[in-house]
Nucleic acid binder design. Structure first.
Lengths: 209, 209
DNA sequence: TAGATTGTTAATCGATTAACAATC
DNA sequence: TAGATTGTTAATCGATTAACAATC
């Protein structure tokens, strides 16, 4: 069971459902129908039901979905029912910002260490900063669920290769480059400049839409 | 001419083509075929040709595409042939990181000012920081092509509304929330936590792929 | 010219939407 | 029970891929 292949399109929508369910729960809403959820997200009720149906369906005929139950199921599906140990490579602007961002930790994604070629401060907030030479020993000793690549573009793929060789299976990449990794490693890109380009595209082509 | 509606899927691929073309040009490569470009990006040659064909086609039968020419055309299409004035709302971790990120400026996206409810320093790098109360006057006086929302989630939609009311047409949103804006305003989201959730989803469901 | 490769139309594939029987 | 709303199958739509005539 549960071996059905879920399309990438569906997977990318799950976090958004989760976010709205969190919101509804905070508002004290206890039940929600596919129709009202759809209206909230700006999608069709069909899509909402199809998406949940991929995982077996979590609703009750004639009633809808229990908000807390559905949220819990989504958390389970997304793997948010555990903690993740993260390290950040690159203690520049982005690396430091991510290290200081409290809400990731609150959601179970714990930044354990930063690495850079130059250690200017021993810690950023309460997270230790190490020389990049220590990376290998650190990972071997402490393990790492997710490595964040927040380096210069020029060294990003070398760093990625090193992390892959150390057995890290998940890379969160902020460098503007496509990383080549083996099949069993997954990469999520935060493509900031590409996103900016889409904005400028739309500005230029506004009249044509 | 040029009024053909381009699908979102195509638009999102354009920045990636542009990035590879930049790379090829730097490497001194002067011509490229749809086939070799496709191999590089991990897509089909058909898709490459279709995508460019949407804008009229920039190649030569039997030859391929001239790298510099194609890159120039993509820059034009993406609106990278001009400068953009940006402001950042929120001088916290992310706002500061973006303000300090040099490559946006190099690409023509100039951060002109930061705004926050509290001004701890008069400038971050060489970018002035103002009290959020000055936002309205600033925008009326200096204009703003793109506003970056780097605030707490709780105030993000208020800030967005204010920016929209001031006539800002492009929002680059880093807050984990969906902004509601009129049709003539465009929003690009950098959904960091959603991206993290996709990573954790894949970790949990690795065996099933 | 012959070979290569485009631009573009047609075919395929997958994702979204509609419909409705099942059922709470 | 009657009304509501799900889970799921079938129909539609759009995006991707294949094919090939045009042509450099």
């Amino acid at each position: 069971m549960g071996n059905k292949v879920i399309s990438e399109a569906v997977v990318k929508r799950l976090p958004r459902y989760y976010r709205y369910l969190e919101h509804l729960e905070q508002e004290g809403v206890t039940k929600v129908s596919s129709g009202s959820l759809a209206r909230l997200l700006g999608v069709t009720a069909s899509q909402v039901r199809q998406d949940f149906c991929n995982f077996g369906g979590f609703g009750q005929h004639g009633y809808g979905y229990d908000v807390s139950y559905l949220k819990g199921k989504l958390a389970e599906i997304l793997g948010l029912d555990r903690q993740y140990d993260m390290i950040i490579i690159g203690a520049g602007n982005i690396g430091r910002a991510l290290a200081g961002y409290k809400s990731f930790a609150a959601e179970g994604f714990k930044v354990r260490a930063l690495f850079d070629i130059e250690v200017r401060e021993p810690r950023i907030g309460d997270i230790p900063v190490y020389n990049i030479e220590k990376l290998s020993d650190y990972v071997k000793e402490n393990g790492c669920d997710i490595a964040v690549i927040a380096t210069q573009k020029s060294v990003a793929s070398d760093v990625a290769n090193q992390l892959v060789a150390l057995g890290v299976k998940s890379l969160w990449n902020f460098a503007p480059i496509d990383l080549e990794v083996p099949d069993d490693v997954s990469v999520e890109n935060i493509a900031m400049s590409e996103s900016l380009y889409v904005l400028s595209y739309r500005m230029k082509n506004k009249n044509k839409n």
